[in-house]
Amino acid sequence: MNPLNYRHLHYFWVVAKEGGFARAAERLDMAVQTVSAQVKALELSLGHQLIKSSGRSLVLTEAGQAALARAEEIFRLGQTLHDDVRQAASGPAVRLAVGLSDGISKLAAHALLAPLLDTPSLRLVCHEGEVEQLLAELAMHQLDLVLAGQAAPHNPNLRLSSDRLLSAPVDWYGPAALVRKSAVDRFPDCLADLPVLLPTGHSALRLAIDRWFDQHGLRPRVAGEFEDSALMAVFAARGLGVFPVSRLGAEDLALMRGLRHLGECPDVREDIHAIRSRRGLHHPLVQRLMAGALA
């Protein structure tokens, strides 16, 4: 198999993006015949026709579509090379890859990670997804840490450890138009009369809140459900409804103008667990996070 000529691939990529040899030649500042010859050389190298005529236009064959998809990936990666080299030349970056499970408050997660944000040359990577998916990435060392609403399941093959970082009481907030003194004085009964925003059903916090509603005989009108607590706060600030948030996450609500405190339900708590692999146990930023949160 002949080694791939990336110059030939680039010419083919430009032809496909521009929709023809003439426009590609103009963009490359080359003769049409030269561009055509380079693409033909790529087709000979790969052993398949990539472009064919269709009336007065050119279309990609199935092989050409596959080649274009791979070329898009290659040149997208190539565009990041300058940034990567510049960052490496300016000093080693401290990379921290964190998985955030769908069910946890992103406001609380931000508050937990905030003490690390002043780390020089920090490169913070946050992935969001289902717990099972994130734990698989953690086991394959694609993540250094997972923040989730529950402890790591017992699985001797994964060799994961977890600690509860946070167990914070939950407060309710809402826009000034809804959080009036009469509502505050009647909390939590007022929730039966106000539009309510809640975490989605797979969240551990949602389950605790639903039980709390049952205990108080409340049947609120749910105006919205959100996986992301920060997005929920934005919609609340726009007047959509009142919403619950852990007290730690509420520290970030100062960024949301117009939100007011409605009431407390201290018997409802949000738990966040830090799950690590053996490799993550030795990451300096993970150690710093754990030391600060468990102090």
Rank of each mutant, 00 (worst) to 15 (best):
V94H: 11
V94N: 05
R95L: 06
L96D: 10
A97Y: 01
A97P: 01
V98P: 02
V98D: 07
G99K: 12
L100T: 02
L100M: 12
D102E: 15
I104K: 08
I104N: 09
L107A: 15
A108G: 11
A108S: 15
A108P: 03
H110S: 12
L113E: 09
P115E: 01
P115Y: 04
P115T: 02
P115F: 06
P115W: 01
L116I: 07
L116R: 10
L117D: 07
P120F: 08
L122I: 03
L122R: 10
L124V: 07
V125T: 11
V125A: 08
C126M: 14
H127N: 12
E128P: 00
G129P: 06
E130Y: 02
E132Q: 13
E132D: 15
E132Y: 00
Q133F: 05
Q133V: 10
L135N: 08
L135S: 07
L135D: 06
A136L: 09
E137A: 14
A139Q: 12
H141I: 00
H141E: 15
H141T: 10
Q142G: 14
L143T: 04
L143V: 02
D144M: 03
D144E: 13
D144G: 03
L145Q: 08
L145R: 07
L145Y: 07
L147R: 06
A148E: 01
G149C: 05
G149M: 04
A151F: 00
A152E: 04
H154D: 14
H154N: 05
P156I: 03
P156F: 02
N157D: 11
L158E: 14
S162W: 08
S162A: 15
D163R: 15
D163I: 00
D163N: 07
R164D: 01
L165R: 02
L166V: 13
S167K: 13
P169K: 10
V170P: 03
V170K: 05
D171M: 02
D171N: 01
W172R: 01
W172I: 01
Y173W: 14
Y173S: 04
G174Y: 02
G174Q: 04
G174K: 05
P175R: 05
P175D: 08
P175L: 10
A176D: 09
A176T: 10
A177D: 12
A177H: 05
L178W: 08
L178Q: 14
L178S: 13
R180S: 13
K181M: 08
K181N: 14
D185L: 15
D185V: 10
R186I: 00
R186E: 11
R186M: 03
F187D: 07
P188T: 07
D189M: 08
C190F: 04
L191E: 09
A192T: 03
D193I: 00
D193R: 15
D193V: 05
L194H: 11
V196C: 09
V196P: 01
L198E: 13
P199W: 11
P199A: 09
P199Y: 10
P199R: 09
